[in-house]
């Protein structure tokens, strides 16, 4: 399936730091939007670049970055984990205050502070926002593109939904056992015990959580709906990391939609660049040999600064052309 296929609703763009993920994620967004799609680009990288790239202020909520006459648009968002955690804990605090006497309110707040600074909270918060954004493909957007943090972080993030589903399962089984004992007690005596309303709310919360994790897990492993694009430059270290990332993604059953070899040195701009091109060709042959089934899209090195809507438009055009053209490795 082509990278720009309309059936793709979710794309993750990943790769080594500095290879051009944000630029290409934005270019893909722009290209799709020009064919009428409503696209949301979500940056999950703590070192956000989306705003810098588009020369706009991009926030924790979607901001309009581009519109066109075909009805398509590109919105952008930079996830703020701390704000996400703060909102989450504020909601929990409201529940606590509802259920605790007045004199314990200040203590409840202190109690929640631990969760705010606990290791893992940032990742959970980012995951939460990814799940929320992925759910937008049913209504607000035709395509959601995640511009991700350099490889390792993102791979761990993609493994989280499955792990957290397991966590909620364990807790739900515990609740089931507890409920069975209650039921057995009722069966024995025919007496209905006063169940607490907390119990019902607890179960409801756990079920909602599990549903969210399961849905996300299902979405990212659905090869038709979701794909991962690995961006790299045809140099030794990025290529090595790319091959490892693809292997990890295969293990997680995440479909690798395409590889993008970015900043390809030209053949006709002097000896230095031609020499670099030769080295790149060698690396690309190795990539083709290692991963014959995955399409490799090559994007040329572009003169000038790649910032702002117009420059991104040029990149989008280049990308469009390359995707359509069948690519054979130079021999």
């Amino acid at each position: 399936m082509l990278l720009m296929d309309e059936r793709r609703r979710i794309l993750f763009v990943g790769g080594k730091g500095g290879v051009g993920k944000t630029s290409l994620a934005s270019a893909i967004a722009l290209a799709r939007s020009r064919r009428g799609a409503r696209v949301l680009v979500v940056s999950t990288d703590p070192a956000h670049n989306l705003g810098h790239l588009w020369e706009r202020d991009v926030e924790d909520e979607p901001v309009r970055l581009a519109e066109n006459s075909s009805g398509g648009c590109v919105d952008g968002m930079e996830i703020d984990p701390e704000r996400t955690i703060a909102r989450h804990l504020a909601a929990v605090e409201q529940t606590m205050i509802r259920m605790l006497p007045e004199r314990q309110h200040a203590q409840a707040r202190e109690h929640l502070e631990r969760a705010r600074v606990a290791p893992g909270s940032h990742e959970s918060a980012v995951l939460e926002r990814i799940a929320e954004a992925a759910e937008l493909i049913d209504g607000d957007y035709d395509l959601v593109i995640f511009d991700t943090a350099p490889s390792g972080h993102t791979l761990r993030l993609l493994a989280l939904p499955g792990q957290l589903a397991g966590w909620t399962d364990t807790l739900l089984r515990n609740r089931d056992r507890s409920e069975r004992f209650s039921a057995a007690m009722r069966g024995l005596t025919g007496r209905v015990e006063q169940g607490s309303s907390s119990e019902a709310e607890l179960r409801r919360t756990l079920h909602l959580r599990r549903a969210r994790f399961e849905n996300l897990q299902r979405a990212i492993t659905d090869a038709e709906t979701c794909g991962f694009v690995v961006v790299f430059t045809a140099e030794a270290l990025p290529v090595a990391e790319t091959l490892e990332v693809v292997e990890s993604l295969n293990g997680m059953h995440v479909d690798v939609a395409a590889l993008i070899a970015n900043r390809r040195s030209p053949n006709d701009a002097g000896d230095l660049l031609r020499a670099r091109r030769d080295v790149e060709d060698r690396h690309l042959r190795a990539v083709h040999a290692a991963l014959p089934e995955i399409p490799v899209i090559e994007v040329p090195l572009v003169a000038g600064e790649l910032t702002g809507v117009e420059a991104l438009g040029v990149l989008a055009e280049l990308l469009q052309q390359e995707i359509v053209r069948p690519r054979t490795p130079q021999s």
Binding site: I85, H88, L89, V92, T95, M96, R98, M99, L100, A108, H111, L112, R114, A115, A118, G120, S121, S124, A125, E128, L164, W167, T168, L171, S198, L202, T205, L206, R209
Partner: peptide, 9 residues
């Protein structure tokens, strides 16, 4: 912890 916090109340 982020998710456990939700169950605390």
């Amino acid at each position: 912890a982020y998710y456990s916090a939700e169950l605390m109340p």
